[in-house]
Simulated scan of single mutants.
Amino acid sequence: MRKISAGLFIAADGVVESPDKWHFPYFNEEMGAAVTAQIGEADTLLLGRVTYDGFADAWPERELAGEEDAGMAKDLGDTRKIVVSASPQAFTWRNSEQLQGDLVEAVTALKAEPGGTIAMSGSISVVRQLLAAGLVDELHLLVHPIAVGAGMRLFDETAGPIPLKLLRCETFTTGVLYVVYGPADQA
Score class of each variant (00 low, 15 high):
residue 65 A to I: 00
residue 121 S to C: 13
residue 125 S to F: 11
residue 173 T to M: 01
residue 116 G to N: 10
residue 46 L to A: 08
residue 177 L to F: 06
residue 122 G to C: 07
residue 117 T to H: 03
residue 137 D to G: 14
residue 185 D to Q: 10
residue 22 W to Y: 09
residue 149 G to M: 11
residue 166 L to A: 11
residue 2 R to N: 04
residue 88 P to N: 05
residue 147 A to M: 15
residue 27 F to R: 00
residue 24 F to A: 14
residue 94 R to G: 14
residue 30 E to T: 15
residue 50 V to Q: 14
residue 104 V to Y: 05
residue 143 V to K: 01
residue 130 L to C: 08
residue 185 D to E: 14
residue 57 D to P: 00
residue 95 N to T: 04
residue 127 V to D: 11
residue 139 L to T: 00
residue 18 S to K: 15
residue 84 V to P: 05
residue 128 R to C: 03
residue 31 M to P: 00
residue 133 A to T: 02
residue 143 V to Y: 00
residue 147 A to W: 04
residue 4 I to N: 02
residue 56 A to Q: 10
residue 61 E to P: 00
residue 100 Q to I: 01
residue 52 Y to G: 07
residue 129 Q to A: 14
residue 43 D to A: 08
residue 155 F to R: 01
residue 98 Q to D: 02
residue 13 D to H: 08
residue 127 V to F: 13
residue 180 V to C: 14
residue 23 H to Q: 12
residue 140 H to R: 11
residue 167 L to W: 02
residue 173 T to H: 03
residue 147 A to R: 08
residue 169 C to A: 15
residue 146 I to F: 15
residue 99 L to D: 04
residue 169 C to Y: 01
residue 16 V to A: 10
residue 49 R to Y: 09
residue 173 T to G: 02
residue 134 G to K: 04
residue 66 G to R: 10
residue 67 E to Q: 13
residue 61 E to R: 15
residue 186 Q to L: 05
residue 59 W to K: 10
residue 21 K to A: 13
residue 45 L to F: 15
residue 148 V to C: 08
residue 156 D to F: 14
residue 169 C to L: 10
residue 161 P to C: 02
residue 89 Q to C: 12
residue 122 G to V: 01
residue 151 G to H: 06
residue 170 E to M: 05
residue 164 L to M: 14
residue 123 S to K: 01
residue 133 A to Q: 06
residue 143 V to G: 04
residue 46 L to K: 01
residue 80 R to D: 12
residue 65 A to R: 14
residue 20 D to Q: 12
residue 25 P to K: 03
residue 149 G to T: 06
residue 158 T to V: 11
residue 163 P to I: 11
residue 14 G to L: 12
residue 13 D to A: 11
residue 185 D to P: 00
residue 37 A to E: 15
residue 69 D to L: 07
residue 134 G to V: 13
residue 3 K to F: 03
residue 158 T to R: 12
residue 180 V to Y: 08
residue 145 P to W: 13
residue 54 G to I: 00
residue 83 V to W: 02
residue 82 I to K: 03
residue 52 Y to E: 13
residue 93 W to P: 10
residue 65 A to H: 08
residue 187 A to R: 09
residue 95 N to A: 06
residue 78 D to L: 07
residue 20 D to V: 00
residue 64 L to Q: 15
residue 52 Y to F: 15
residue 19 P to Q: 09
residue 35 V to K: 00
residue 41 E to G: 05
residue 155 F to Q: 00
residue 153 R to M: 09
residue 94 R to D: 15
residue 102 D to S: 06
residue 179 V to H: 14
residue 41 E to C: 05
residue 154 L to P: 03
residue 167 L to C: 06
residue 101 G to E: 14
residue 53 D to S: 14
residue 27 F to Q: 07
residue 107 V to F: 03
residue 92 T to D: 13
residue 145 P to R: 10
residue 182 G to P: 09
residue 67 E to F: 03
residue 152 M to W: 01
residue 34 A to Q: 08
residue 20 D to A: 09
residue 185 D to I: 07
residue 99 L to N: 08
residue 131 L to F: 14
residue 62 R to D: 05
residue 104 V to S: 12
residue 91 F to R: 01
residue 20 D to K: 05
residue 172 F to V: 08
residue 135 L to F: 09
residue 117 T to I: 15
residue 71 G to S: 13
residue 3 K to A: 04
residue 170 E to Y: 05
residue 42 A to E: 02
residue 54 G to Y: 00
residue 5 S to V: 14
residue 72 M to D: 12
residue 55 F to K: 06
